[in-house]
């Protein structure tokens, strides 16, 4: 069972060295534009190309392609099949298959969805693969995210491997006692509770001790927090973030207007 640590790929490229918030704002702006901007195909393709450029600059095109294939290939196949054959808007027949036919409208519909999904995925990958999760959390804290929220965002990543290890230990112990996890439906259902319940209980027991440890480290102290070090940021990036935000807002509004006036 694979519990990933993160998608982050260490590196020293320009993209890697951008401030985490810059990359976060970028991927959010891109997602907004891809789905809500004017001109269906243009709004999807342009941000996607930009993201591919960023990934190339970061030296991550190979890995990104693998991820896109892994995450979207099944979906793409099903989309083309289902909509090519069964989309209610299908009128223009491209290929006749007995009582069914492959329709152009359905294929076009599926194609647009696929392009959008790929574009939004590569946009978020250009952010996620070049940013260490800890730096993202710190960047958010520096920007004013309350420490409590930062804790919720940051600590699951580090707690996870420990708890995942415990599940495997419980699974091994139960299997040694004769628990079957393969086999027919009934067996698998019965395997569920003895696997899941001890794990949940033991995780909950930890909750109390963890909260005490945080308290004595001053987690709920009301003194203003200080920090050990700061992430490097530039005024240029600061401006860029605002520009991207405004651009996305503008394009979203434009997209709204465009759709309201019959664009499709």
């Amino acid at each position: 069972m694979l519990i990933p640590h993160s998608l982050y790929q260490p590196g020293e490229t320009l993209v890697h060295r951008l401030h985490p918030l810059t990359k976060l704002v970028y991927s959010l702006a891109a997602a907004a534009i891809i789905f809500g901007g004017p001109g269906m195909w243009l709004s999807a393709i342009l941000p996607g190309l930009l993201a591919i450029l960023l990934l190339w600059r970061a030296g991550l095109t190979g890995r990104a392609v693998i991820m896109v294939l892994r995450l979207l290939a099944p979906l793409t196949l099903v989309l083309f099949l289902v909509h090519g054959l069964f989309n209610p808007q299908n009128q223009t027949i491209l290929i006749q298959l007995g009582p069914f036919f492959v329709g152009q409208e359905g294929l076009a519909f599926a194609a647009l969805i696929v392009v959008r999904l790929i574009a939004v995925l590569v946009s978020s990958l250009s952010f996620v693969m070049t940013t260490h999760p800890a730096h993202l959390v710190q960047a958010l804290e520096e920007a004013g995210l309350p420490r409590r929220l930062a804790y919720l965002l940051g600590s699951p990543l580090l707690i996870m491997p420990q708890l995942a290890g415990r599940v495997q230990a419980i699974q091994a112990a139960q299997q040694a006692r004769g628990l079957e996890t393969q086999g027919n439906l009934l067996m698998r259902i019965r395997a569920l509770f003895p696997l899941v319940a001890p794990f949940i209980f033991s995780a909950l027991v930890d909750v109390e001790e963890r909260s005490l440890a945080l308290e004595v480290r001053g987690f709920s102290a009301s003194t203003p927090k200080t920090s050990l070090f700061e992430l490097p940021d530039t005024p240029a990036q600061h401006t860029a973030r605002w520009v991207m935000f405004l651009l996305a807002a503008f394009l979203l509004a434009a997209g709204f207007w465009w759709r309201a006036n019959g664009g499709h």
Partner: peptide, 14 residues
């Protein structure tokens, strides 16, 4: 200061 039994639970996780 307070130190408890379970070492891993006392890590901040942050």
């Amino acid at each position: 200061g307070l130190v408890l039994q379970n070492p891993t639970n006392q890590l901040s996780g942050m």
